[in-house]
Design a protein around this nucleic acid. Structure first.
Lengths: 142, 142
DNA sequence: CAATTAAAATAGCCATGGCTATGCATTTCA
DNA sequence: TGAAATGCATAGCCATGGCTATTTTAATTG
């Protein structure tokens, strides 16, 4: 057999994959942020989510609607937004990935504030395989 | 003065930046691809662009319309799509960045085919500053 | 407990980026 | 050179992800 990583993809396949990653990126960001807010304040209100995401309140409401459709969150008006088990799992994974990407960038010499900025976009396109490489790199230098 | 990289950004700012990066990502991909096709075949036809991008032909036509609006490309029906100077410059920068990201990922241990996949999304979110770090890293182990 | 305030939802707009189906124009070639 | 085939454009649909303006509903408080 050939090397398991040598299976080349057409450009079209690669673009399709990047489009797909982009489609889930926003939901991941919301889920992570809701997790953060709950951790910090014990609750995640729509207005706070909107403010942190840098969008208008109805935009956040719409996004939360999508989260609910995807089974990632629930909400009760005037009581905040909550993550389902599935949503909480996703939030954990996203947060871990975010942290790894930032730490990795810092480890190779990117200033921390720049690493935070870049990671916001990068993290959604890093495969599990690449993430594992980043982690190995970080462990390898203690 | 304080360190030039310590100016912290709010989450909202970071997300806004990532959204902006995403907005230009698609145009960058098209411009790069058109440059590739012209280099390979001497011309970039709408149908070929669509096929390589993995989208339907009218989707490519629409995107090319945006490129024209942005002053990045011109086209003559049945004669193909051409890059303006501005478009060619952008294509060069995008191609260079793509190459650097792939090479960097490979250098830290990511299998090449995975690096290609991940780079497709990552490249649009790598700042000039981070790119410079990647290049330094590559030179440092030349 | 009613009035006010604040929070969220709704309505309705826009651009982007997909799609299919269809129409038109150009090239090609019999 | 005219018919067929090809290439591209157009029309029109859908979902997403923004926005503002407005309405509804809940919480707070005089």
């Amino acid at each position: 057999m050939t090397d398991s990583h040598s299976d080349d993809q057409s450009p079209a396949d690669r673009f399709a994959r990047a489009r797909e990653a982009q489609a889930v990126a926003l939901l991941e960001d919301y889920v992570e942020m809701i997790g953060d807010l709950i951790e910090e304040f014990g609750e995640a209100r729509v207005a706070d989510i909107a403010e942190r995401m840098g969008v208008a309140q109805p935009t956040a409401t719409k996004a939360i609607g999508r989260l609910k459709r995807e089974g990632l969150a629930t909400s009760r008006p005037y009581r905040g937004v909550f993550l389902t088990d599935k949503g909480a799992d996703l939030a954990d994974r996203v947060r871990g990935r975010h942290r790894t990407v930032v730490e990795f960038l810092v480890a190779v010499g990117v200033p921390h504030s720049v690493a935070e900025l870049d990671a916001e976009g990068i993290e959604h396109h890093v495969s599990d395989e690449t993430l594992a490489v980043f982690e190995r790199f970080l462990r390898g230098r203690g």
